[in-house]
Structures are given as C-alpha cells and as structure tokens.
Computed example of a mutant assay.
Amino acid sequence: MNTGPIPTEYTSIRKFTRRALLRGLASATMVAMSSRLYAQHAGMGVVSPPVRLDDAWLIDQTGRKHRLNDLLGQHVTALQTIYTGCSSVCPLQGALFSAVQERMPDIHARHPIQLLSIGIDPLSDSPSALHEWLMRFQAGPGWNAATPALGDVDRIRTALSGSSLPLGDIASHSTQIYCFDANAMLRWRSADLPRADEICDVLNALGRV
C-alpha cells in the first residue's frame, strides 16, 4: 500500500470536485427558493381546464414571423423557455430536448410532434443566435425556436406558469416543459427539468386525442 504523500494533482481534483458539488447544492437551494417565490416554477401536472395562450408574433430561427397559435396549431408540441446567452440550465434544457428528439420517431400520433424553444431575451435571441443554439444540440426539422417581442415576453411566461406570482428575472427562468395538444391548448406542465421519457409519454398521449 502506498503511504507516501498524496500527489498534488489528486488533491486538486478532490478540491475541484468538492467545489463543483458545493456549487451544485447552492444552485439547487436557489431553485428551491425560487419555486416558492416566483411564478415560473408554479403548478405542474394536467392543466384543467386546458388553456389557450393569447396570441403574439414571434420570429423564428430563419427570420420568419409567425403567430404563436399558428406555430402550435396542427401539432402536438413540447415547449420550453430558454435564452441563448444562458450558460447554466439552458444547456441542460437543450440536452433534454435532444434526448426527446431521438425518441420522437417511436411516438405514433394522429398529429405531427414538434419541439419548440421560446427565447425570452429578445435583445439577444436573434434569428442567428437561435439558429446557432439549435445547431449546438443537432436540432432536426421537428425542433424550432422563436422569440416574441420584448413587450410579449412576460405575458407569455405568466400564461405558461398559470400563476399570479411575480416572474423574477430571466436568469431564474423556469425549466418546466409545457405540452400542447393539436388545437394549441396547453394541457400539461412538467416539474423542473423532467425526464425525456416523461415528456415522450405525454406527447404520445396527446397525439392520440
């Protein structure tokens, strides 16, 4: 057995791992606090009665303008809110949708399935930034991104949350997934950062409605 001094590089790795763990615990604590204080971490589960969001114009990753409910209509949609400058939870959200995208061919539905990433920082979430963000996660044709006008961002976030609590800033935005049926009705809200299989199960169920 080696009883000599612990190599310096091993000690550094241990310190780094401990710092990473402490940062993770701190982040988890802040999210837990936010869930009690802010609307974007509000109720989860089946939305009853279903909700239609007020319409708004959005610009997608190609620079084209769409009405929100036109984007949602005729598709079963899993929607997430992101911003392209986010380096904390948004990469996790991108990885989550990437995992869902891999499973989409196994979903047999009456309506097309799509993924929609909504940018909530219109000053930075330009079409080119949205395009680069999608390419980072190898998004296919069934996964699009779009950004509303600045004046519509909080209105959309509030409607998604289903709560009257204050929103907080975009840095603490929700990592919930919102699922819509083919009539553009919000039918389900996930917990924060749900499993890909859970999202697929909901899309599969809504696709048969």
Rank of each mutant, 00 (worst) to 15 (best):
P105L: 11
Y38Q: 04
G43W: 05
A32V: 07
V76P: 08
I59D: 02
R52D: 06
S27R: 13
T62A: 09
H108L: 12
S88D: 08
I107K: 03
E102R: 15
A20T: 10
L96W: 01
A109V: 02
T84M: 02
E102P: 06
A99F: 04
R36D: 03
R23P: 03
L53C: 10
I113D: 00
G43R: 11
G43N: 14
Q80V: 15
R19A: 13
H66Q: 00
S35C: 02
S48K: 10
Y83S: 05
P91I: 03
V51N: 07
R64K: 10
Q61V: 01
H108S: 13
S34I: 06
A32Q: 05
D55N: 13
Q80M: 13
Q74D: 15
L37C: 03
P49L: 06
S34M: 11
F97W: 01
D70Y: 01
A99N: 10
G73Q: 12
C90L: 03
C86V: 00
D54C: 12
P112N: 02
D54E: 15
Q101K: 12
S87A: 09
H111I: 06
M104W: 09
G85M: 04
A56G: 06
D106V: 05
Q93G: 10
D55M: 07
A42D: 11
A78S: 07
I59T: 15
S34E: 08
L72P: 00
D106T: 14
A42P: 06
R52V: 13
V31N: 08
W57M: 14
R19D: 14
N69K: 00
A26S: 15
V46D: 08
N69C: 00
R52T: 13
S35E: 07
C86H: 03
V89P: 05
M33S: 10
R64T: 09
A20L: 12
M44K: 15
V46Q: 12
V51F: 07
Y38I: 03
L22T: 14
S98D: 11
A42H: 08
Q74L: 09
V100Q: 05
V89C: 02
G45I: 05
K65H: 11
L79A: 08
Y38M: 06
R67A: 00
A109I: 02
I113S: 01
V100D: 04
H41Y: 09
D60A: 02
V51R: 15
H75C: 09
P112C: 02
I113G: 00
T81F: 11
T81C: 11
Y83M: 04
R36I: 03
R19S: 13
G94M: 03
I82H: 05
A28S: 14
Q40Y: 01
G94D: 03
D106Q: 15
V51P: 09
L92T: 11
L22P: 10
A109R: 04
G73C: 08
R36W: 07
T29V: 13
I59A: 04
A95S: 06
R19C: 12
D106M: 11
S35G: 04
L71H: 01
I113E: 00
V46C: 09
L22Q: 14
Q93N: 07
L21Y: 14
D55K: 07
I107A: 08
T81S: 11
R103L: 15
Q74I: 05
W57G: 13
A20I: 09
Q40T: 12
A28E: 14
R103Y: 07
L96D: 01
C90G: 01
V76A: 07
L25S: 14
Q40P: 09
Q93A: 10
M33D: 08
Y83W: 10
G45N: 05
R52C: 08
